[in-house]
Design a protein around this nucleic acid. Structure first.
Lengths: 229, 229
DNA sequence: ATTACTACTAAACGAGTAC
DNA sequence: TGTACTCGTTTAGTAGTAA
């Protein structure tokens, strides 16, 4: 929907709406529309035919011009664009940010923490998936990625509460839903352990990522982190 | 500004904003952007170059991708689009409607009314121009135009108050700022007299329109009526 | 007046590739 | 890996014109 070339159509819809065609049937000649679009009469005519074929407008041709009404589908397209823009402009944080890092092997502590029932229950409840009992460690190599990671810490996160058992205390964890390599839905977790520095992130997912994505140490992995509204 | 071909740029800006580039410097490869745009890597590259040249983004090229930040100018473009859409979607009335009618000669009563000092003062104050002492009468010939005129009556108007003198009462008048033949700023006035039916409108303007636009009886005239917010 | 077809021109696109 | 050039191909745009 509204792919690539359809932008001209959305723009044309916008111009038609400026003439009131989203509320009432408006009489608009192709010549007049052409002027508003900064294009030729023929191009305006073609656009209208395409919009009509696409079901975005209803068009009746009369000797004095076209009677044009934007359909509900067309209005919905305009509203969609509007809400996208509103979201972007009003949102405090970017809707998503991308991090890249190199796979490395940790000390296997990931499994230990993830396996804790108190954490697991919360992961399932708040992230919507049951994490594979292990983490994928990524080393951030560029200044950009390290800086981005530190910005991420200030964003609203899915908060996993800490707890304590007989022997020790387990701290709270911040997670961010994320897409790994544009394929797998998982989450970035920050501060699961304190002894990794700001240049490391850990990933959890419903699968064993190393196998699922055929990863080996040193491979570069891209993670698209979704921030919360 | 933002003419014709620049729409692809606005939509590219939108995509960049979705990656957070309107708030922070984001690392975005041309390949990645291409995916979001549904275009080739080369096209994405070209778009970024064009946006950069146009001052809409600030771009730094690194071996791992482009660091991109939408400039204030670029953000302003997005906000402009947003407010246009918001206005269209939230407004109760279309921002403008177009009427067409044929010039005809009335009984000369227009001058009589327009010349009344009590009306004149209000026209100058509320429309921002001193009307030529006469009206251009237009006969609406199509169902569409008559229907549109009747819709117009329900829209918010510049209200001119009525008054009475020794001999009689002069009723209130509704006017709508309008552009005549895409050239002259004037106003449509409704219900100045009651004995014309719904298929007639009268136009006032700072000039003698018949002379200024070289109009004769039977000529078709286009009027773009601006409704009020 | 209009709309919109056909035939042509101009512009945008993207594969290949250099860096 | 990246970006971005050239250049052949595809697509969009327009002039002329029929209906």
């Amino acid at each position: 929907m509204s792919e690539k070339h359809e932008w001209r159509h959305i723009f044309t819809l916008l111009k038609l709406a400026e003439m009131g065609a989203h509320r009432r049937t408006a009489k608009i000649s192709t010549e007049y529309l052409a002027g508003k679009l900064g294009a030729s009469q023929q191009t305006a005519s073609r656009y209208l035919i395409e919009l009509d074929n696409g079901g975005l407008i209803k068009r009746t041709i009369t000797p004095e011009g076209c009677l044009i009404k934007i359909t509900d589908v067309g209005v919905r397209e305009l509203k969609k664009l509007h809400s996208t823009l509103r979201f972007l402009i009003e949102a405090e944080y970017p809707p998503s940010i991308t991090l890249e890092g190199l796979v490395f092997t940790g000390l296997g502590e990931g499994s230990y923490y993830i396996a804790k029932e108190q954490y697991r229950k919360q992961f399932i409840e708040r992230l919507g998936f049951e994490p594979y009992p292990g983490t994928l460690n990524l080393k951030l190599t560029t200044d950009y990625d390290v800086k981005t990671r530190s910005e991420l810490e200030a964003y609203p996160a899915v908060e996993i509460e800490g707890f304590k058992n007989e022997t020790r205390t387990f701290g709270p964890v911040k997670c961010y839903p994320a897409t790994i390599e544009n394929k797998v839905k998982g989450a970035v977790i920050l501060a699961l352990r304190s002894h990794y520095d700001a240049s490391v992130i850990e990933i959890i997912a419903p699968f064993f990522l190393r196998k699922h994505l055929k990863l080996k140490d040193g491979h570069k992995v891209k993670v698209e982190v979704l921030t919360l509204p």
